[in-house]
Design a protein around this nucleic acid. Structure first.
Lengths: 208, 208, 208, 208
DNA sequence: CATGAATGAGGCTTCATTCAT
DNA sequence: TATGAATGAAGCCTCATTCAT
């Protein structure tokens, strides 16, 4: 027994140190942005020895990705929401709801998302990580479209993946706009437009 | 007096030097990417004196933006194409055509566009420049939508700017995909799906 | 009392740990070379605690020398071979044989010898260790020369130590060449030439 | 005219700076040895800006090799000495003379040669450089042997390259001994023994 | 207008070693 | 004996930019 418990104590210590570094990292990233942040700053903020950071993280990217992943879990939760509409209206409503959750989360985490956006452009690793997230969303959306097609709710001559991609891209870009605080439109208006175009298109249907 | 003929010669000289630098810049950017390119490299490639580059460009961004602008003119030409459809079908066709031009240009200039993409993420100035281009496209698309609405071809309870934005964003993202060579879909298929969703939506219209 | 049986167990344990470290050391040294190998790597490979290595070895050199000594025992065995030739031809043959053993052993242990060579250049301690080995060889060869002189087989106006030195040095250098895989000559040819020059010289004797 | 001469002035300046760095380099290397010397030390000693050293040298090795090459020129001069003996005695004498020059130079440059020796063991580049020097000597000696064979002064069933190699190696090792101040023999004695063994061998010729 | 030698701030990273348990 | 988290000194190197000519 005494051979195992002491290690737990040590491990606890180690976990604390790592947490301290992550917390410091978040703080510095939020304050200085991704590019300008240096490992030194994080270390100083964390009040850790210089080498210590390198025990836990290979470099700045590595630390940031860990930080980012915490956040992305929340996005994944939204992506995985079930989607089984029974009518066209029902679908419309569910979709609007999903978009709402997605955009709201981004806005709520605005500060961190701004850093994420910067990091995507600068670091190939972070970019990769973001692509994974995109793909996860797109895949899930494609499934939903497939379901709607099988229920004869959606047009069947369209490739679910391609539609999912275009749809997600619009959402993502509006999301970045909101995160940047640069949108001149209200979130509700954005959602309304996105959803209408997506479900019903811009033009009037041909009158038979 | 002495400012007339000799200065013309000098100006000629100056223009030549600048061109030499821009050409070298393009070369190095294409080879090394945006981040890894250094002013020193460009200077060496241009076979110019170290200080000389600073006569013409404030820094790397500055030089790059000049390079980028040459390319963007071509995009503007596409954006400015007239759009005055008379029927729903006509509109559909014209839109598809526009998308085609847009994506084709990007693919044709793929190499430079890849660098542009990288630069957008890294340099705030380049990012700003790209935003200008986006806005120009969006503004023009909004005009077109407005026209379609006035012709009673398009739904009128939608804000042209907002629709234009969403529409452009989808197009842009597929464009980057194609530029990255990472799309698993043919350009024709992409265009077809984009246009259908945009004009007619994904779901069947309510019957009755 | 309690120092008897339990301590034996402990000692057993200790010996095991040390062996584990030495084995890991050999592995890492062979893979990464001397300079690039770090104590940390060895520790990780040995699956031992960080501090543990310091219980047994002062540092990298220390560990390496222990490893090296195992190998050097084999060289000593060759050096100690008896040498009591009765004729010039007999001597020639015995010498050739000795050289053969020496070079063959080095080639057989090539991988480790490469590391040894690197370590000699980098670490003063290892260098010292190698000098001991040289001296042991030279001393033994000097004895042999002395014996040959006493038997009136060898020239007597030559200092055995000096001759031994020059002789050993040639051998050693060819040995390193073979170890480096950089010799363009066969081992047999090398042995033949070494031995002939050593015993009979390069030039024809004076025809009196 | 005024377009060309100013550059000469600048170039002069640059050459001075480089010399300053080389001089500082020599100083620091002699004082601290190869491994312990850092670029920073050299820069401080040279009273130059930090980046300046990197304008002229890629790194420590690079600077050292330049320093080393100055010295090696002197060795090359010895290696290239003509060798066209007419008799066995003549050859013996010329060889002894050559050895004398070689060892004397090394002893005269003892301090620098000690650093060179250290550097050979530590830096692959320096090691390579030294190998070049060895090969140059060996090649030249092989030529000389070939000449002696053609004059029927030397045994003809021996491969000149192989003999040259063995001969040079003995010389080199004694050289390092002298440089290390670790030889217990006088240089004259060393030369005498080396030359005798090389030309006449250790053993008496067969009496027939 | 053109030059190019000189600068130095400042980031990155490694690793031997300690010491409390 | 054994452990392994924590340390921090120290070296490396790049590159934008200046300024005297």
């Amino acid at each position: 027994m005494s051979t195992k418990e002491p290690s737990t104590n040590r491990q606890q210590q180690a976990i604390q140190t790592k947490k301290k570094l992550l917390k410091a990292g978040r703080e510095v990233f939020l304050q200085s942005g991704f590019q300008k942040t240096t490992i030194s700053q994080i270390i100083k903020t964390a009040n850790t020895g210089y080498g210590t950071a390198y025990v836990y993280f290979k470099n700045k990217n590595d630390l940031f990705i860990e930080l980012m992943e915490e956040l992305m879990i929340k996005f994944y939760e939204i992506a995985e929401k079930p989607f089984e509409p029974t009518t066209r209206e029902n679908a419309h409503e569910m979709i609007a709801n999903q978009v709402n959750l997605f955009l709201s989360l981004a806005v709520k985490e605005r500060e961190m998302m701004q850093i994420v956006k910067e990091a995507i452009g600068v670091s190939e690793e972070v970019n990769q990580e973001w692509k994974n997230i995109q793909e996860r969303f797109i895949k899930r959306i494609a499934q939903d479209i497939h379901y709607a097609q099988s229920q004869n709710l959606a047009k069947q001559n369209l490739d679910p993946t391609l539609v999912a991609r275009g749809w997600f891209y619009s959402n993502e870009m509006f999301m970045w706009e909101l995160v940047d605080n640069e949108s001149h439109h209200s979130m509700d208006e954005i959602i309304r437009h996105l959803t209408i175009i997506y479900t019903s298109g811009l033009y009037f249907q041909n009158q038979f």
